[in-house]
Design a protein around this nucleic acid. Sequence first.
DNA 1: TATTGTTAGTTACAAAATCAACTATTACGC
DNA 2: GCGTAATAGTTGATTTTGTAACTAACAATA
Lengths: 154, 154
Amino acid sequence: MMTEKSPNPEAGKDTFDLADFLPFLLNQAAEESSLAFQNVYKDRYGMLRTEWRVLFHLGMYGRMTAKEIGARAMMHKTKVSRAVQRLAERRFLNRTRDARDRRSEHLELTPAGEAAYRDLRGVARDYDAKLARHFTSGEVALLRSMLRQLAGIR
Amino acid sequence: MMTEKSPNPEAGKDTFDLADFLPFLLNQAAEESSLAFQNVYKDRYGMLRTEWRVLFHLGMYGRMTAKEIGARAMMHKTKVSRAVQRLAERRFLNRTRDARDRRSEHLELTPAGEAAYRDLRGVARDYDAKLARHFTSGEVALLRSMLRQLAGIR
DNA sequence: TATTGTTAGTTACAAAATCAACTATTACGC
DNA sequence: GCGTAATAGTTGATTTTGTAACTAACAATA
């Protein structure tokens, strides 16, 4: 009996392994490493992933439009629109139409939204520190820089 | 006018930035860096993410059960079940019941499945190399190792 | 060998994401 | 100004996922 399956020898001298494939690995790491954080915003505020993202963008960078959030978070406008709707229903944010261009509206957190944001930001900070603790600070800095590059952020 | 928005000063000495938050960054990097690959398996074979994952597991590691795939890819059994169904409908894999334990079934690629796998593996290899080309080989090795750790893989 | 529990995999129903079509508003070209 | 194109955001139809309940088969044990 084999102790562990290894890549199919049929591949010949080719050493490509799915477990090393960056898109696969990135997805696994992303999913696993955000599970526990996901439970916090879900259990505490009934939020979805898109919703805490919008909340964080508004809390962190201040008043902005749905379009701006979409561009920054690389979220499709439909996703942003529905997340904003749900956050507005629960009074986490206010929407005000731009006077000069009445198509777009400015989004801003309510006090309740601010409170939720501050709470979750604290959780996120601790969570991030906990993840980073597995590595040296140089490693983490390199990781962040590489991820930013991979994401095409600036 | 501001040239670029920066984290809200209200945060005080706190320098936590959403754009550095690992779960966020990992998700962005994962999504963006797999977009082009996603288009290939989608356009060429009409496959979803779960489906190419199953295909790759079978192509790379050979005949195994749905449960094994789920464990390796950290996919819920429902997801695996449906991906297997679709792959079976399109004749990319065969399912045979285990004689000793008739609950489980062994999955195996058909010749068509093997062909699709080999094609996509080639695409994946090139794709991975293209991503890695932005960094030194030492950086990439460290990245993979860190991602594996973050994903909880071994 | 009944009883109870566990496991592999499927299915049903609800929640969410995707894609395209739509409304309302502004911008452009003439 | 008038017609056309472009933009911000919403809505609806379809697809995909997630959660939980389900079936079928095996295991343990009294």
